[in-house]
Design a protein around this nucleic acid. Structure first.
Lengths: 125, 125
DNA sequence: GCCGTAGTACGATGGTCGTCGTAGTATGGT
DNA sequence: ACCATACTACGACGACCATCGTACTACGGC
């Protein structure tokens, strides 16, 4: 009886171009910013993305395969967290500067999306 | 009698995703790293890219339209420079962290390409 | 004027990418 | 066992992207 295990690139396999490519998409940047604001990890279902569920699955896979996020199953849910330590070691300041740059820009969709802007705290504890 | 003028996006028009997308390509990253090492500006012909001239033109256009580089004609040559001040104002630390991350990685092609790794100084003066 | 050089518009090609719906799998609760 | 939930593999679609060759434009030197 095995729990589902997901493949992640090792630190040596993480490529700068793949990371930049992963971060260059609005939906994936949204996920990364959400996780940057969240202590610990967050399930996919906690993050509202303005795309279908199957597209969301695609985007999470791109982030994982680029080495930007760590994913682990807990029951049916997939818990996500940034590989901040790895990315900061490989590319110092990159993640922080991207996240803070994304946070500063004017957001047009902030009024229309619910929940994506803020991580839920103290839920299911 | 007009000199050829190139369109550049204003600071307000520069988008984080477009910048990240522009930097996510190996050839374009090569150009940006070259220009980061170069004081002042460099002509396209000074930067050896491992692609054809027409593909090179395509890549320079992507960088310019993303707002990463400034381009100006001097005779038949196009002089390129990074829009460092603009990018640092918009996305503090981003350009520096990308460039230093790119500089740190092991380069497999460094032995096979000539000149791209180092800007030529005191040539044609 | 011609010539050499730098760079390009155009069109084509093949691959990549983001998108989605559908039918499916895996899990935990009952 | 069933059920609800989270998530996904698959295939499809249309747009985007990187690539190149060809014929071209613009420029400065002579």
């Amino acid at each position: 009886m095995s729990v589902r295990v997901l493949e992640h690139p090792s630190v040596e396999e993480i490529r700068l171009e793949a990371v930049l490519h992963a971060l260059a998409d609005p939906a994936r940047l949204e996920v990364v910013c959400f996780l940057a604001r969240t202590e610990g990890e967050a399930a996919c279902s906690e993050i509202d993305l303005a795309v279908s569920k199957s597209t969301g699955t695609h985007h999470y896979r791109v982030l994982r395969e680029a080495g930007v996020i760590n994913q682990v199953y807990q029951g049916t849910a997939k818990m996500n967290s940034l590989r901040k330590a790895d990315l900061d070691a490989l590319f110092p300041c990159l993640l922080d500067s991207v996240v803070s740059a994304a946070a500063k820009r004017p957001r047009r969709d902030q009024g229309s999306t619910s929940g994506a802007g803020r991580p839920r705290t103290h839920q299911g504890e």
